[in-house]
């Protein structure tokens, strides 16, 4: 489903502060799999996630999504793939302050221009699924950490993506909420979504839901991408 061939990512190329975050990564994620990228801070997990979710382009190498090479696609096509196929849950949640919970959930679907009633019904359905419907009209800044993360999950799911990507999703959660999060991810995986999580939290990579763990260090895969 997602295939990376000899991918490198260098930041600030040809400048004194040049830094190579990923060094020759070849790696594949299959459809409906549950993969965790594990490794210490600075190992390149987040960079790898952003390349796979079409948020950035590699400095070298090729990336395929559903057997289509996306490495050199123009920005608007990448945005389209990002919107339709990937739902991202950020470490800091990155919800937009001042907007209601419901509005935050609906934002990724605005560019598709579908009917408001249909979109709202789907957003409310997701809030219901994640047990936060009563707070649909509340402002984001009034939510607790756990609630904010549920909103971030709902937002990631609004366009019914094939892949759900989460970057350090349990960094701001206690153990109970972390396990709860993994439960939600397992349900989504059972429902046919491909799950890709970057984390160094044992609650995540030790979870029974995880099918495959890819260990990373210093911008390289430690295990060669095999099942650990």
């Amino acid at each position: 489903m997602i295939r990376l061939v000899d991918v490198r990512k260098t930041f600030n190329a040809d400048k004194p502060n040049e830094f190579t975050a990923l060094k020759s990564i070849s790696f594949e994620v299959t459809r409906e799999s549950f993969v965790v990228l594990k490794g210490p801070s600075g190992s390149g997990k987040t960079t790898l996630l952003s390349l796979m979710s079409c948020m950035a382009r590699p400095s070298a190498g090729r990336i395929f999504f559903n057997n289509q090479e996306i490495t050199s696609l123009p920005e608007r096509f990448l945005a389209d793939i990002r919107r339709r196929s990937f739902g991202v849950i950020f470490q800091q949640f990155n919800l937009i302050k001042g907007l209601s919970l419901l509005e935050n959930v609906m934002i990724p679907a605005y560019p598709s221009g579908e009917k408001f009633a249909v979109l709202k019904a789907r957003a409310l359905g997701l809030l219901d699924l994640l047990d936060i419907t009563p707070r649909a009209d509340a402002k984001i800044e009034w939510l607790s950490g756990g609630e904010a993360q549920r909103v971030a999950i709902a937002r990631a799911l609004i366009n019914d993506p094939l892949v759900v990507i989460a970057d350090e999703p349990t960094a701001h959660l206690d153990s109970r909420l972390s396990r709860e999060f993994m439960g939600i991810m397992q349900r989504l995986n059972d429902g046919g979504k491909t799950i890709l999580i970057a984390s160094h939290d044992p609650v995540v990579y030790d979870s029974a839901a995880v099918e495959r763990i890819v260990a990373m260090r210093d911008g390289q895969l430690e295990t060669g991408g095999r099942l650990s």
Partner: peptide, 19 residues
């Protein structure tokens, strides 16, 4: 900085530059 971050979020969740 808040507005820049907001633009980044919108792009990350699927908005195009033109949007």
């Amino acid at each position: 900085a808040e507005e820049r971050k907001e633009i980044g979020i919108l792009k990350a969740v699927g908005w195009d530059t033109s949007d």
